[in-house]
């Protein structure tokens, strides 16, 4: 069974759909990259998966259930790292971790063990009692990342993760992702940093004007675009030209 399964999903903010008949799935232990131009529908797709937008048609199954069928299982199955960090200005770093742990039903011992490791990994041990107003953009991002990795879900949804992080932060994030993958978790990541996507993603989904233009491994994509030695950058640019030619 796929961890995440989208079947013919259409939807958007208004009556006019932004994403059209999307179908793709993510298997256990896979790292999948969601790639597309600005406005291709990446963020809208993610909003449908996390459940802040509901699909007009089609269905989204996470661990076998839709949001309507079993909200607790659905929501407990993923954690989400948004492109712009969303923090509680009134909570300290420590309390962000505690709140997340409470919401996902972790006990205090697990919280202490896991957060200690994460804090060390992201070099934030000394900032436990700080409020977000004192954090830089990168640190805010790290708070989101730590909260996401704290809960050990089956699916991580990461929106544009590398912007604003320092090189060490990026490395820590990649290490964490690799570790979780080995433990069997799946990751859906949207990004513009194509070289990183090419290097780390098992599969890539190219979104274009709200539809899946192509998906698969790098080799699948090269075949689809008929460019046998192309890098992801080349494919991306080919897709751009296609758009301009229309």
């Amino acid at each position: 069974m796929s961890i995440l399964q989208l079947t013919n999903v259409s939807g958007g903010y208004t009556r006019k759909p932004v994403i059209k008949e999307l179908s793709f799935s993510i298997e256990k232990g896979e790292l999948v990259g969601l790639i597309g131009l600005n406005g291709a529908g990446k963020s809208t797709t993610i909003k449908h998966i996390i459940g802040t937008l509901l699909p007009r048609e089609g269905e989204i199954r996470l661990n076998g259930v839709t949001l309507n069928e079993n909200m607790d299982v659905y929501r407990g199955s993923f954690s989400y790292i948004p492109e712009t960090p969303v923090l509680y200005e009134e909570l300290t770093l420590k309390e962000h971790l505690a709140l997340t742990a409470m919401a996902y039903g972790l006990d205090e011992k697990t919280l202490a063990e896991r957060s200690e490791k994460l804090l060390k990994e992201f070099r934030m041990e000394k900032r436990l009692n700080w409020f977000p107003s004192h954090f830089s953009k990168g640190m805010r991002q790290k708070v989101m990342i730590m909260c996401a990795f704290l809960v050990n879900p089956s699916l991580y949804i990461i929106d544009e993760p590398f912007v604003g992080l320092d090189p060490l932060g990026i490395q820590s994030l990649l290490d964490q992702m690799a570790a979780k993958k080995r433990e069997g978790a799946s990751i859906l990541m949207s990004t513009h940093i194509l070289s990183t996507a090419e290097r780390y993603c098992d599969r890539i989904i190219l979104l274009h004007e709200g539809r899946v233009r192509a998906q698969g491994t790098m080799n699948d994509l090269r075949k689809a675009f008929n460019m046998p030695h192309a890098s992801l950058d080349d494919l991306y640019i080919a897709m751009t030209k296609e758009q301009a030619g229309e």
Binding site: R75, P82, A103
Partner: peptide, 11 residues
């Protein structure tokens, strides 16, 4: 505004 607790698996 969007807050993270809107995604939490709590009622």
């Amino acid at each position: 505004e969007f807050r993270m607790d809107m995604l939490y698996p709590v009622p």
